[in-house]
Nucleic acid binder design. Structure first.
Length: 614
DNA sequence: CTAGGGTTAG
């Protein structure tokens, strides 16, 4: 008898127990050789011919349900187009091939994990085939099927059918299937979070996977504070969080801008010995940066012994968010030097950094190098970075030219970027005409109305402005209210422009008035003189002094002595608030950090880290 | 052959 296994055998040794490889010295069986032959064919070339050749060999050797080969087969770039995909599947399911659960499971999974949308779209379609062939699903079927459905957020109906089938065949008590159900429903969007929660509530919560699925679902649905609440319940229940749980928590912290939470997660991971994997460090960098602690994010990056392109990109994004373009570009260069080739996402990071720091020439160089040096075809996001870069720098014509030469149809984001440039640089007629076209094409998008309404306000065309308002209410379109949050003693306080729901609202409003008096005393002039610089999406009708960030700052000034003030805002800071906060930082001698919808402003001694370039 | 997860233009 072999001695019992020690409790924590190294991973590679544990794996061996599940290996299908023969333990003895016998030569590998014929099926093994055939499998390897198929894989080699696919490795050598991904042309349709090679794929077909591999398939033919597969069928000839009776390997039709070999998961390894099938997965590679459907991951081959030849399967990007339905033209090859369909005959392939038809050949696989030919009359001479017996259909069993194993084959269908493998087909579902291979399609669901294919890098090609056309293959992923039809993954779930293999399940009906199973029913038609009177084959019973096994315990592997529903985890695969439900995950395939999760990738189709546009057609939740398929997922609902899959859930019904899981019920019918009695697999909903299975933990694996139930966890995937939670995941699937939360992928269908906010309206299905209740369904996810229903599944969650009905199952035993003995595994970290169940909790992580629900926590991740809340984050995905934009309910990050519920995610944090659920994490606290999880701790109370005694289930030990693992790495994935903590990743969800970090995403929630990043979303909420909850710096203390993000830092706590960093310590928690240390304390619980969860292990700082590369993935976890990447998430930590991202969360710290999005909570305004860029230096902390850089410190985590510096401490990593192994870094992937995602780590580099995360730290470059972190620096870009604070407008530290030179440092971001420096890291991008260092990344290339140490032999990590940038991918398309890394280029978005470095282009954003250039854009936010006014480094137009550098940005142009990087954009050109994408294709020339790395063979990466720029996507619409990269063109968007360039349009933004020219626009911010006041080169509105160049921005427009870029849109004209783009090889793809400009999307609303591109147009809105242009409009922001027009507004920032006084090109109001151009901005207005672009916005009008945009409204014709996308009448349901709230931001477009607000944009046009603000253009009218800037040009003092009040009649047109009120027409826009009427049009919005007629269509039932609501403006997202400006909202700012601050964390104080582990509690999150939320402020909405002009609202009076905070228990201390009277004191806060008195404080805001006092701030206004102080600022007037030192010569700060409100609003209108800077109106052309205003990029804000917020309604200008309300008094500028009741903007949510001012309320939040007043609250923190009231409640704390000379500490740092950190505010997270859902929209962009308007020009008046920006100018006012600069003064506040001087008059009250406080460092004030405001997280925008897109970046950070660090106010100190009357100036801002963005150098008024935003 | 089983579940939950990291960076992405404004």
């Amino acid at each position: 008898m072999p001695p019992p296994l020690p409790p924590s055998l190294p991973r590679h040794l544990r794996r061996r127990r599940f290996s299908t490889a023969p333990a003895s010295h016998h030569p590998p069986p014929a099926s093994r050789l055939a499998e390897q032959h198929c894989l080699r064919l696919l490795e050598r070339s991904s042309t349709p011919a090679a794929v077909l050749q591999s398939l033919a060999f597969l069928l000839k050797s009776g390997l039709n349900s070999n998961p390894l080969v099938l997965t590679r087969l459907f991951a081959s770039s030849a399967c990007a187009a339905p033209a090859l995909l369909e005959p392939l599947v038809a050949a696989l399911l030919g009359p001479s091939v017996p259909i069993d659960a194993f084959l269908v499971n493998t087909l579902i999974r291979a399609h669901a994990t294919s890098p090609f949308a056309s293959a992923r779209l039809c993954a779930a379609a293999f399940f009906p085939l199973m029913l038609r062939s009177a084959v019973l699903p096994n315990k592997f079927t529903f985890p695969f099927l439900l995950k395939a459905c999760a990738a189709l957020p546009g057609s939740p109906g398929v997922g609902l059918q899959a859930h019904a089938a899981a019920l019918k065949f009695g697999f909903t008590t299975d933990q694996y299937a139930s966890n995937t159900l939670i995941h699937m429903y939360s992928c269908f969007g906010g309206g299905f979070l209740g369904d996810a929660r229903n599944v969650f509530d009905r199952m035993p919560k003995s595994s970290a996977v169940t909790w992580s699925a629900m926590i991740g679902g809340y984050v995905r649905g934009g309910l990050s504070s519920d995610a944090v609440g659920l994490f606290r319940e999880m701790q109370a229940s005694g289930v030990r969080p693992d790495e994935v749980t903590v990743l969800g928590l970090l995403a929630a912290a990043a979303d909420l801008g909850a710096l203390e939470l993000a830092r706590w997660v960093g310590r928690f991971v240390e304390r619980e010995g969860i292990g700082k994997s590369v993935t976890l460090c990447n998430a930590l960098i991202d969360a710290l940066a999005k909570c305004g602690d860029v230096d902390g994010a850089v410190a985590v990056f510096q401490g990593m012994e192994e870094r992937t392109v995602v780590s580099w990109t995360s730290v470059i994004d972190a620096l870009a968010m604070e407008g530290r373009g030179k440092e971001a570009v420096g890291l991008f260069e260092e990344m290339k030097t140490v032999g990590v080739p940038p991918d398309d996402v890394a280029f978005i990071g470095v282009l954003t950094a250039c854009s936010h720091a006014g480094m137009v020439d550098e940005g142009r160089g990087y954009f050109d190098s994408m294709k020339m040096e790395y063979g990466i075809e720029p996507k619409i996001e990269h063109y968007g970075c360039m349009v933004d870069m020219f626009g911010r720098a006041g080169m509105v014509e160049q921005a427009l030219d870029f849109v004209r030469v783009m090889p793809m149809k400009p999307n609303p984001i591109i147009w809105r970027t242009l409009v922001a440039a027009c507004r920032a640089h006084g090109r109001l007629e151009l901005g207005e005409s672009i916005t009008k076209n945009l409204l014709n094409e996308y009448p349901a998008h709230e931001a477009n109305y607000v944009m046009l309404s603000n253009v009218y306000a800037l040009t003092q065309r009040w009649k047109e402005k009120s027409e826009i308002r009427r049009e919005m209410s007629k269509r039932g379109i609501k403006k997202v209210p400006g909202c700012s949050i601050v964390e104080l003693d582990g509690e999150v306080h939320e402020f909405i422009a002009g609202d009076e729901s905070h228990p201390q609202w009277k004191e806060i409003y008195m404080m805001v008035e006092e701030m206004a008096r102080e600022l007037r005393r030192i010569g700060h002039i409100s609003a209108t003189s800077e109106v052309l610089l205003d990029l804000d999406e917020e309604d200008k009708e309300g008094a500028l002094w009741w903007h949510s960030e001012k309320l939040a700052i007043a609250f923190v000034l009231l409640r704390t002595p000379g500490t740092q003030v950190r505010v997270v805002k859902n929209l962009r800071v308007c020009a008046d608030c920006h100018a006012a906060i600069k003064c506040i930082s001087r008059v009250y001698n406080r460092e004030i950090i405001v997280r925008d919808r897109s970046r950070f402003h660090r106010f100190k001694n009357g100036s801002c880290s963005c150098n008024d370039f935003w």
